[in-house]
């Protein structure tokens, strides 16, 4: 298990005032982040407004040393012993950099395998298996520069698994990829966690990706943890009220008015919004049966009636707006 507590990173940044004059100032990239990643779990790290996601990942991968806080890696103090951690982790970043374009896929994997001191026989087998998993076995001997973006990204995945890591850090792994390749990668990421028991931390700008893959989500803003929980917990927290979509044949303002009066008897604060021949009903109360009874009583033919589950994206956007509003009020 990976557990970080109150991790902080403060950079000492030089600012040039004039040609001969330089001043130093402290820039807080990560103020206070605590999180936990268990084996077999996919954890999402979402950020708003320069949240410090990348710095957090770099600290977890031991590339950057935290200024304060603790980092326990399967019981090892990872800040004091980064070398013990390096063997058991790897990172996969999105984009086309970080691989050698003039080398073939096989040579890239072989090189990184050597950096981990993997036995040559085992390495050969592992490379073949990984190339097969990412579907590059037929192109293994071609220079990477001849690959498409998706193929390069698949090679990145194989590279990130070359040392059979216990924990994998995925930093925007599907950035710029088309839907088909993204779906394949999602399948692979799920399999790594669920079938192979690897602990995965995922950052992504695609909230639907986080929603689809992650078991648990941390939302950070300006270097601080804002909220954490499962997707359900997060959306429930942000959307305390239920949303229903309701439409009937021949729906008009009169029906909407009668519906509003009817529902306000149950929840006086309920809202009924009418737009494009359909109603959106917002209420703290559970109104599904009340709406259905109203339609029966009025002898209306129901076209649509369902409770709308808010998406993670909607939750994050709403939360982001709330945070912006809060910041403006403070300012």
């Amino acid at each position: 298990m990976i557990e970080i507590k109150n991790l902080q990173k403060v950079y000492d940044v030089k600012r040039r005032q004039s040609f001969f004059h330089m001043t130093r100032e402290k820039v807080v990239a990560v103020k206070d982040i605590s999180m936990r990643i268990d084996k077999g779990q996919i954890v999402g790290l979402l950020g708003i407004n320069g949240a410090g996601k990348t710095t957090t990942i770099k600290m977890l991968t031991t590339l950057i040393e935290p200024t304060n806080g603790t980092y326990s890696f399967d019981g090892i103090d990872a800040i004091a012993n980064p070398d013990l951690v390096k063997r058991q982790i790897n990172m996969i970043a999105g984009g086309e950099r970080m691989i050698y374009w003039r080398l073939t896929a096989y040579e890239n994997l072989w090189y990184y395998g050597q950096l981990y001191g993997i036995d040559n026989t085992l390495l050969k087998k592992r490379i073949e298996k990984l190339l097969q998993i990412v579907g590059l076995e037929d192109k293994a001997d071609l220079p990477v520069e001849t690959y498409s973006k998706g193929m390069k990204q698949r090679l990145q995945i194989a590279r990130g698994l070359i040392n059979d890591p216990k924990y994998i850090f995925l930093d925007e792994p599907t950035i710029g990829l088309d839907a088909v390749v993204t779906q394949d990668l999602h399948k692979e990421i799920r399999s790594l966690a669920k079938d192979q028991g690897k602990g995965i931390l995922l950052t992504s700008h695609y909230l639907s990706e986080v929603e689809e893959l992650c078991d648990y989500i941390y939302l950070v803003n300006k270097g601080e943890l804002v909220i954490e929980g499962t997707k359900k917990e997060l959306t429930d927290y942000v959307f305390a009220r239920n949303r229903y979509v309701f439409s009937v044949r021949g729906m008009d303002k009169k029906i909407v008015c009668r519906l509003r009066d009817n529902l306000r008897m149950i929840d006086p604060e309920s809202e009924v919004l009418f737009e494009d021949g359909s109603c959106t009903i917002i209420s703290k109360a559970e109104l599904s049966s009340a709406i259905a009874e109203f339609a029966l009583k009025e002898k209306l033919v129901i076209n649509e009636l369902h409770k709308q589950e808010p998406s993670l994206e909607q939750a994050v956007i709403k939360l982001s707006k709330n945070l912006e509003r809060k910041d403006t009020q403070i300012a």
Binding site: T61, K86, G95, M98, Q114, L115, Y116
Partner: peptide, 18 residues
């Protein structure tokens, strides 16, 4: 620039050997 240095540093390989 190519970002590969980051992965070299991510590995436990001896920096002197690299």
């Amino acid at each position: 620039q190519s970002g590969t240095l980051e992965y070299i540093y991510l590995s436990p390989a001896s920096r002197l050997a690299v």
